[in-house]
């Protein structure tokens, strides 16, 4: 029976993928209030890729990643991590092959960087030398500094280092750069890229679109517990009808006579949005739309106070799909 069920199960995995999630669902109940954190999520992450789960706070990214890590038990759905399933008697074997960096972990305050790594290294039968890991995350000069004296970026790199001591095949990073300064973020990105170069697989969550765009081979946009878009950052951006924006600030005195609607008829303009004297044109190609827009503004005698063009980002993809901004929700 089990065999047969496996054969007819359309979601049955081949075991080749780093992660396979099929019909994942998780509901949190608190009193009479129920929150659907993950709502029938399907996902496949290939070996060797850096995969990003992008979405606003509360979209279900962390719940999904914690189900993958074996920390949270889903209500229903199938999970395969490196070809194995949790709670089938191989949990420690899976744990030996993954590295995890949770959100907001505080290690022993009085322990030095090296001592913390030594503790985590002891859990794994095979793994890297402490010096190698220290070099990987550029913490060699801080090896003998206690946790309490580290900066935010250094702490975060230590957290990643504890995930790397056991030579994992699969690395989970839950919002690894939240709250870090730009330099610390770039340092962490370098660590992730170096890990991938050694044929590692990375799954990370983020609500920074630039992080997803620069670091990830593929991105899954998550909203309300589902993956609503999946692909390389370029594919996702190209999926927009138009992927450039022309933002125009007309002079305030033109406000009364300003009518943005005619701009929509210009060549290669896909959409027009207006907010006071600020007008945003969504265009397919800047080099045709922009001269046409300037000509029309001049003909209508609308003085321009400012002009900018930009390429679409994953944020625009999210806005296009949901009508909301990534950073609107959750924490203020």
């Amino acid at each position: 029976m089990t065999l047969r069920a496996d054969v007819i199960d359309p979601g049955a995995g081949d075991g080749d993928a780093a992660i396979e999630l099929v019909g994942l669902r998780k509901v949190y109940r608190k009193g009479k209030q129920t929150t659907v954190a993950v709502d029938g999520l399907d996902l496949r992450v290939e070996r060797g890729e850096v995969f990003g789960l992008l979405g606003p706070n509360g979209a279900g990214k962390t719940t999904t990643i914690e189900i993958c890590e074996g920390l949270t038990v889903p209500d229903s759905g199938r999970v395969r991590i490196l070809g194995s399933q949790w709670r089938t008697g191989v949990d420690d074997a899976i744990r030996a092959r993954i590295g995890v960096c949770l959100q907001e972990t505080k290690f022993h305050e009085k322990a030095t960087v090296r001592e913390t790594l030594q503790l985590f290294r002891s859990f794994f039968a095979t793994g890297r030398s402490l010096d190698e890991v220290l070099d990987l995350v550029s913490l060699r000069e801080k090896a003998d500094a206690r946790q309490s004296t580290l900066s935010g970026g250094q702490r975060q790199r230590l957290a990643v280092a504890t995930a790397l001591v056991g030579t994992p095949e699969l690395l989970f990073l839950d919002e690894p750069t939240t709250g870090l300064d730009p330099q610390s973020r770039r340092q962490l990105w370098d660590v992730v890229r170096a890990f991938q170069d050694r044929s590692g697989t990375v799954v990370l969550t983020t609500h920074y679109m630039d992080e997803a765009q620069q670091l990830c081979d593929r991105v899954g946009i998550v909203d309300k517990g589902k993956v609503i878009a999946l692909g390389t950052p370029d594919e996702l951006i190209r999926s927009l009808d138009a992927e450039h924006f022309v933002e125009v600030d007309f002079a305030k005195e033109a406000n009364g006579s300003l009518d943005a609607a005619p701009f929509a008829a210009l060549p290669d303009v896909a959409a027009v949005a207006r907010e006071g004297s600020h007008v945003v044109l969504t265009v397919r190609s800047v080099h045709t739309a922009l001269p046409a827009m300037l000509a029309m503004a001049s003909a209508q005698n609308l003085p321009i106070a400012g002009l900018a063009t930009r390429h679409a980002t994953l944020e625009d993809v999210f806005v296009h799909l949901t009508g909301r901004h990534l950073r609107d929700e959750g924490k203020p």
Partner: peptide, 9 residues
């Protein structure tokens, strides 16, 4: 920290 330890072998 307990959670972090729980996801190791």
């Amino acid at each position: 920290l307990l959670r972090r330890l729980a996801v190791t072998p």
